[in-house]
């Protein structure tokens, strides 16, 4: 009997999701034992034509990582949706746009102009990449960039969401175990739209640092206060930490080495807009009732756009027509 097919594809991402999957180590052999790997460009040589030749929904499980940054990404998203029974929005880029989503703060023409006019760029004719170029031998093409970064669910129907930049390997291993159990009839799939491979609370809830409900008089930048007290809450030491708004699931890894949570697991369960929740959380630790003083304290956050929407901008309420976090909670 032939095994069910597995695929993993990357678009506007950094490759860290692939590394996180390979970091499940021996368990990758379970994937090999239970699936035919139909398509996984980083690791093997099957090509797009091989995917196009498959029946619709012939791939049982496709992990899609990466945002939709150009037209080729979008084309591939439609193809993989059509060929896959279960399409998982895997990692922060696919799910909420991630750091490259900060590109949405600027018109796409500005992103391109900057890249081709840096101080070391030798560009006397002020060339920009062209989608179609006539070279002496013929015509060659590259895909056009889209006007902004889109999440996967903004362009195709998605079955499950798996947050994290990248998802932690122990979470990936747990999801793979679950899928194998489903194949063996020992478990059932979660309802469509579920967030999988993550916790149901906030990073603060799994962070061992002690919270004393201490209010602060100023926000401080980490290079001005490091090393932090290793036992106490980072936010209460004045360093903007995104733990209160961020979904649990990583075991609070960054705070464990003295660094603040930067929010890579996305909005905590039930949060509609990530930045709005974080602003509320920060406001609640400020030790003042004087509006002027509060404003002064908030000025201590040097980059509000980056602080509150570092990973989440492309999926935030700011993005026209993007229902912020429409995933069903289970």
């Amino acid at each position: 009997m032939s095994k069910p097919k597995f695929a993993m594809y990357w678009s506007g991402s950094c490759g860290g999701c692939e590394i996180a999957v390979i970091n499940i180590h021996e368990k990758i052999l379970d994937v090999d034992a239970n699936f035919d790997i139909a398509f996984w460009p980083v690791a093997m040589d099957a090509k797009v034509k091989d995917v196009e030749a498959l029946e619709d929904e012939e791939i049982l499980l496709c992990l899609w990582n990466g945002s939709i940054r150009n037209e080729e990404n979008e084309h591939m998203a439609h193809l993989m949706r059509k060929k896959s029974k279960l399409l998982v929005s895997f990692g922060s880029c696919a799910t909420e746009g991630c750091i490259p989503g900060l590109g949405n703060l600027f018109p796409v023409a500005e992103l391109i102009d900057t890249a081709y006019t840096t101080l070391t760029t030798d560009n006397p004719d002020n060339i920009r990449p062209q989608t179609v170029t006539q070279v002496p031998e013929g015509e060659i093409t590259i895909p056009a960039m889209k006007d902004r970064v889109h999440t996967l669910a903004q362009v195709v129907d998605v079955d499950y969401f798996m947050p994290g930049c990248p998802p932690e390997s122990h979470q990936i291993a747990a999801v793979i175990d679950l899928v194998i159990e489903v194949l063996q009839g020992k478990a059932e799939l979660p309802p469509k739209g579920a967030v999988i491979g993550a916790g149901h609370s906030t990073v603060c809830e799994e962070c061992p640092r002690q919270r004393n409900l201490k209010a602060i008089k100023a926000f401080r930048r980490i290079q001005d206060v490091a090393p932090l007290d290793p036992e106490l809450c980072i936010l209460e030491q004045g360093v903007p930490c995104n733990g209160p708004a961020t979904r649990s699931g990583c075991k609070a890894r960054c705070p464990s080495v003295g660094a603040q949570c930067i929010g890579c697991y996305g909005p905590a369960e039930g949060v509609v807009d990530y930045g709005a929740r974080l602003i509320t959380a920060f406001a609640s630790v400020i030790d003042s009732k004087d509006p002027e003083e509060i404003e002064q304290i908030l000025d201590g956050i040097p980059d509000p756009a980056g602080q509150f929407y570092r990973f989440n901008l492309a999926d935030s309420l700011f993005q026209a027509g993007a229902p912020a976090f429409k995933k069903n909670e289970v």
């Binding site: 940054r69 590109g103 703060l105 796409v108 890249a115």
Partner: peptide
């Protein structure tokens, strides 16, 4: 075939 634009959006 790709560009993300880090040199621009890291400004700020």
């Amino acid at each position: 075939p790709e560009l993300r634009g880090f040199e621009r959006f890291c400004v700020g």
